[in-house]
Nucleic acid binder design. Structure first.
Lengths: 247, 247
DNA sequence: ACGGCACCGTTCCTATAGGATCTTCGATCG
DNA sequence: CGATCGAAGATCCTATAGGAACGGTGCCGT
């Protein structure tokens, strides 16, 4: 129908729909637990129900939507207290390992390590220095964010926080680990949007401490730093479970 | 068409197709990297292409099939050496945490722990003892398997090994951790089927050592035991990477 | 008044047909 | 002889229509 405007598409319609619906859920354009009508969504996105169905199937694997057979899809409900605790534990497991791994890479480079890597020591060193600088830049950003308030500020802060943690996981060098961290992140994002909290300065300080520990090449210090950060962040979110019965 | 035979289906057709295709890939009914024709698959399963497409979308999220836009789906290619190493590292991260967690639960029960759990101490204790017995039973099974040879024996061994590790992850009490372990397992299963190896006795011994460590309630011992097991298992699979260029 | 039952609207689920795209094969030119 | 261009085949992707099941509502019986 309107495919004529993009003759050489590299991505299929279902992929676009996937991103759109994902954005819809992540931005709370559809409330948690709300029913998702396939036909209505198809009309809204101006596509046929088939690619919508395909996109929803993928989103269900990601845990962002839930499917009840012969009833329909619903947006993922908010995390219960138990699920929140499990999420925190998973983050501790994955991100501690991630931070340790990055620190180990720096330690290996610092002590000379093996020079038989194809890239050559100098370039690798420069690459690592660049990585550290990039991490530090992402860590510092929350502290420099404009003093905007309200929903947009929360969303921006959350996105920035996600960038830092994703970058850290990516730099672990383990793609599976990175993917696992990203997957978990979606749920926390939803939770944060529903219970807005932003501790710009605190978050930036803790992030910088993690980066510093990594820079020294000490896996234990890096692990401790990120562990403290995750636990502190969890504590900051904990009050929202008091006095709401959805947990 | 033939839905009349199951009037009160609790599962949709796409779910059945998902399981079927998953079994097809897991049993190497379709070779790794082989192209998957949607229409052909639909005819073979006697359904329309739509649910097949939906099932493939979910399988792609699981990493079992790959999709190239406007080209088609292909069965997941075999793990490269790099991916295998990453898989081993992920298993170390997840399953070590899992074993530690189970051991901690036993330690808490043994030392009396908190008695304010709603189930009551006695029942919880009996439950834990039952869990340990169940784990031990699963761990011992590989050593008692019939001396069958060939593909079926390999498949049976692999399935039994998977049951033990899945049960261990499930008993960690963290559903997300369990899901993550199960997800990783699929890839290892494919790899094993392509390079058949079975060390029944060795595997059973190592499993029992893990169970024993858990029974003592010592997280460090449990972590060490499963770490040794995973590393040993990885070493047993390593030779298959020598002299094949698909890595 | 309360529980069980039947009806109806809505929605999902499945099947089929047509348009667009990529791959492959063959012919042609340098 | 190799490379490039063009066309045919196969496949995927999308759109639309019809059948089946579930949830809600009103009625009836106890």
């Amino acid at each position: 129908m309107k495919g004529l405007l993009r003759p050489a598409r590299r991505t299929t319609l279902a992929d676009d729909v996937y991103e759109s619906v994902r954005a819809l859920v992540m931005d709370h354009a559809v409330a948690p637990g709300e029913r998702i009508n396939i036909d209505a969504l198809a009309r809204r996105l101006e596509v046929s129900p088939t690619p919508v169905r395909e996109a929803l199937a993928r989103l269900e694997s990601d845990g962002l939507v839930r499917k009840r057979p012969l009833v329909g899809y619903t947006a993922a409900p908010l995390l219960t207290r138990t699920e929140f605790d499990e999420l925190v534990e998973m983050r501790l497991i994955l991100e501690t390992a991630s931070a340790r791994r990055v620190a180990e890479r720096f330690a290996g480079q610092r002590t000379g390590g093996d020079t038989n890597s194809g890239d050559g020591g100098g370039e690798a060193s420069a690459g690592l220095a660049g990585e550290l600088a990039e991490l530090r830049r992402e860590a510092e950003l929350p502290d420099q964010m404009p003093g905007t308030e309200g929903f947009a500020a929360i969303a921006a802060f959350t996105a920035q926080d996600a960038r830092f943690h994703h970058l850290l996981a990516e730099r672990s060098g383990n793609r599976m680990l990175h993917a696992a961290v990203v997957r978990l992140r979606a749920h926390l994002h939803l939770f944060r949007l529903h219970f807005p909290t932003a501790h710009y300065g605190t978050s930036a300080r803790e992030h910088l401490r993690i980066v510093d520990a990594i820079g020294t090449g000490d896996p234990d210090a890096a692990g401790t730093a990120i562990r403290d950060h995750l636990l502190a962040a969890a504590d900051r979110h904990l009050p929202f479970f008091q006095g709401n019965r959805c947990g």
